[in-house]
Amino acid sequence: MSGRAERALLVADDLRKSFGATPALDGASMEVDAGEVVAVMGPSGSGKSTLLHCLAGIVPPDSGRVCYDGREVSRMGDAERSALRRSQFGFVFQFGQLVPELTCLENVALPLRLERTRRRVAERRAAEWLERLEVGDVAAKRPGEVSGGQGQRVAVARALVTAPKVIFADEPTGALDSRGGERVMRLLTAAARETRAAVVLVTHEARVAAYSDREVVVRDGRTRDLARAAS
């Protein structure tokens, strides 16, 4: 256990988090190695999303530790966590993640521009990623003008454009039909494996989780790491 934890890129240890009186996480622990795809599964309300938010440094846990690459995320200040998310992580959410006023190309270029990359450079890289995710043709369109599947692929491109070490995907296929969902998952995992990015994939769908290398099950705010338990 400890041997793995030392090698792991991202480690969560005994996280607890409550919103008001309701506990969302009640002792959750997991590790993510560099380049692996981990599915976080569990019924709705089990705390999967909160676990993802804590791992990604979006929400600080009430107690417990989150370490990324040897640095303790749970102790960082807001600005530092923000910078970490910007430079090391990528995000794909279920919906509503693209800025409606920007074109798809500008949306993808946005994380680079937040890192102060020059606009022309940022947009060229964004265009490459759109091509790789098979949505090169929607570059000039606004998110409201493309289909749900195309929008999600644009979002995946946006998550990948900064060459992140970890991609956090929270129900990335939740709003799509099976076929669109499969396509997004196929492209997401292929691109992640190609760039050696780890993926933390929160989903309640087994078929989506099947794209992972292993799964972590969350139930009532606690994790059950099956593969680890078995080995």
Binding site: S82, R85, S87, F91, P111
Partner: peptide
Amino acid sequence: LLAMLVAVGT
């Protein structure tokens, strides 16, 4: 949207 933009590190 604002919360999302902050989440991705804006």
